[in-house]
Simulated assay, not measured.
Amino acid sequence: MTGLLDVSRCEGVLWLTLNDPESRNSLSEGMMALLGRQLAAAADDRSVRVIVLAGAGPVFCSGHNLKDITAHRSDPDRGAAYFSALFDSCAQLMMAIVQHPKPVIAEVAGLASAAGCQLVASCDLAIAADTARFCTPGVNIGLFCSTPMVALSRNIPAKHAMEMLLSGDVFDSADAQRMGLVNRVTAAEELRGTVSALAVRIASKSMATVRIGKQAFYRQRELPLAEAYAYASKIMTENLLQRDAEEGIAAFIAKRPPSWENDT
């Protein structure tokens, strides 16, 4: 355990569980700093192959702490410097997830609200329990969820994103799957087993190949079609010249299990 964050490892999977029930697992400065440090350390840790973000209790993550935000309205600048630093830190955390060399999976058992929904959208994969709920309710209190909008609009179709952002309504896990915010929905009692099985299965792959693929996936999405194909062709060529691709293809032809470089 690391303060507000529970940290555990199993079979190449690093489990990071938000555990601050008093604030409904809010993304406080402390929580974001802890997550950032764990992600940074995991990037160079060869024993970590997959990362899972989870939330203890009925709330996955409630987003930013409105009580902390309100407290800074008494600052000489009415909180402007604090607000700016808070949202900058949040943006850095979300980008650290997207740019991380290891796959990051969100395990969502409860409510993911505002920046908590942003956290889910920033992960590479998301598995939800049938008890999970999702919302970007800022519009209900006069604060449009503009930063959650960045991750949300890059994960689900525009009209679904705008419905969430403009209505502030709470959507269930079936809605989230229909929109594409989560990969699949499972019974609450099966959530941990489902996530663990997926994480371990991904962890069994060549981590050099997974790293190449994750980076290329996000990079090509930013490019026009022709440029995306040119970039992807270059990446495929470079990938084929790597040891794990040579080993994987040879193992497939020989009908034997591959021996990845990160396993030797």
Rank of each mutant, 00 (worst) to 15 (best):
residue 182 V to E: 00
residue 81 A to L: 11
residue 245 A to K: 00
residue 84 S to E: 11
residue 127 I to Q: 03
residue 125 L to A: 08
residue 205 K to W: 14
residue 201 R to G: 00
residue 22 E to F: 14
residue 79 G to D: 03
residue 234 K to Q: 14
residue 262 N to I: 05
residue 251 A to N: 09
residue 27 L to G: 00
residue 165 L to V: 06
residue 255 K to W: 01
residue 234 K to E: 15
residue 152 L to P: 05
residue 142 G to I: 12
residue 188 A to G: 13
residue 112 A to I: 13
residue 101 P to I: 09
residue 174 A to S: 10
residue 140 N to P: 00
residue 183 N to T: 01
residue 53 L to M: 11
residue 30 G to F: 13
residue 63 G to A: 00
residue 77 D to T: 11
residue 19 N to Q: 07
residue 228 A to M: 05
residue 15 W to D: 07
residue 186 T to C: 04
residue 18 L to R: 07
residue 144 F to K: 04
residue 170 V to D: 10
residue 53 L to D: 04
residue 15 W to Q: 05
residue 126 A to W: 11
residue 213 G to H: 03
residue 160 H to D: 03
residue 24 R to D: 08
residue 146 S to C: 02
residue 59 V to I: 11
residue 237 T to G: 02
residue 93 L to H: 05
residue 222 E to K: 11
residue 175 D to A: 08
residue 178 R to P: 01
residue 42 A to W: 11
residue 236 M to L: 15
residue 13 V to I: 04
residue 242 Q to V: 05
residue 199 A to Q: 04
residue 104 V to R: 07
residue 37 R to I: 13
residue 3 G to K: 06
residue 121 A to P: 03
residue 83 F to K: 02
residue 151 A to D: 04
residue 13 V to E: 04
residue 42 A to H: 09
residue 243 R to P: 05
residue 14 L to C: 07
residue 133 R to G: 13
residue 20 D to E: 14
residue 85 A to E: 10
residue 69 I to L: 15
residue 18 L to I: 07
residue 32 M to E: 09
residue 227 E to Q: 14
residue 95 M to T: 13
residue 215 Q to D: 13
residue 146 S to D: 11
residue 32 M to T: 09
residue 50 V to A: 08
residue 204 S to H: 13
residue 183 N to I: 03
residue 65 N to C: 14
residue 105 I to M: 10
residue 80 A to I: 02
residue 57 G to K: 00
residue 25 N to V: 06
residue 137 P to V: 15
residue 181 L to D: 00
residue 100 H to D: 12
residue 258 P to A: 13
residue 60 F to W: 10
residue 16 L to Q: 03
residue 57 G to N: 00
residue 175 D to G: 00
residue 8 S to R: 14
residue 183 N to C: 09
residue 115 A to M: 13
residue 182 V to C: 12
residue 24 R to Y: 13
residue 104 V to G: 10
residue 169 D to M: 12
